[in-house]
Write a protein that binds this DNA or RNA. Structure first.
Lengths: 187, 187
DNA sequence: CTCAAATAAGACAAAATTGTCTCAGATATC
DNA sequence: GATATCTGAGACAATTTTGTCTTATTTGAG
């Protein structure tokens, strides 16, 4: 078990801290603590440094993504249903993945970069399954499918957060955009 | 004419500085200057402060977007062709709009917020046109179309930048995802 | 109610960054 | 070649942020 496994208190803190950091990654620790409603000293009690906090938030995002993926896998759904179920689970985590993408301290960390690359590889394998099952056209570059999924997750999260679309509609809209948009061409 | 109209030298500097800032918005001015290949003193000679630089980059992004929009409009294309032409022009600017979205110093500035809201309104009007012309289904919330366009522009830019897709394919893939994905449902 | 554990405000030092200024060198113009 | 203008390195001061520590207060468990 890695020493980076968060304690129960760290876990609880991450719940509050993640949205604050995701919303304004450049904020000072004073500002972050204030918006999270805790003391700066408490931050230092549980996280050795700002970098340690950023890494914990990033690793937590990765764990949440893995959890969501595992929960979909055990359902043994067909590829299309699996995509919809996957979107339903990861869209509420949309801000965390965006944070992973834009925070240099996160994507430059070797442990996080390795985990992120693994997740990307798993997503690529899943896209292969979607193509083989005919949900995604074979002529669409896999790189495009990957980046479209990532960005539509962020879109959906943002729109829900802004109150522009209902939480229940988010996954369906993203699913429709992807499957209908990148499915086999129809004449 | 606003006093924020950039000088010729500022314009040239923005060309170099924009990608650097967009790539790492939290970098120090020392780091930014170094990566842009200029001196920190030169930055201060042309921009009064870090905030002034950030605002100049943001206003430049807005001007570039307005320019792209104007160039599409004069072509008097039908709604579908206009969307494709628009994507072709704005995808190369993808990092700038992303910067606008994630940089608090940018979106908290009233002048930039006003300009951005105007652009969003224009995009909304364009989406209405797309719906009326049957390119986008009327049942799709306008908010979803807007956010999908924004995020797919960023996706396309990222994928081109990473060398994952060819620059020529980017707009077509984004167009296909949007129009086929959000067009009227087919049975 | 008592006591142990946790928290947070604030003080402090160190480090990092911003902003100002000078001046030698580079560049552009005539 | 001379001169004006621009640039960038570096020094310096001010400000901000990080990280450490102490202590009073709060919270939670028994």
């Amino acid at each position: 078990m890695s020493d980076s496994t968060p304690t129960k208190t760290q876990q609880a803190l991450l719940q509050t801290l993640t949205p604050v950091l995701a919303c304004n990654p450049g904020a000072s620790l004073s500002e972050i603590a204030k918006q999270a409603g805790i003391g700066r000293a408490t931050l230092y009690r549980h996280f050795a440094s700002r970098d340690a906090l950023v890494k914990a938030v990033a690793m937590d995002a990765i764990a949440a993504f893995d959890q969501a993926t595992a929960e979909v896998k055990v359902q043994n759904l067909n590829a299309g249903d699996a995509l919809l179920a996957f979107l339903q689970k990861v869209i509420p985590l949309g801000d965390r993945f965006h944070f992973l993408a834009i925070e240099p301290a996160a994507y430059n960390d070797p442990e996080i970069a390795t985990a992120y690359a693994r997740q990307l590889q798993e997503l690529n394998a899943f896209i292969t399954t979607l193509k083989q099952a005919g949900f995604i056209a074979v002529d669409v570059p896999k790189a495009w499918v990957t980046t479209a999924i990532d960005s539509l997750i962020w879109s959906a999260w943002s729109a829900v957060q802004a109150g522009d679309i209902a939480p229940n509609d988010a996954a369906a809209l993203a699913y429709r955009t992807l499957i209908q948009g990148l499915g086999p061409l129809k004449s």
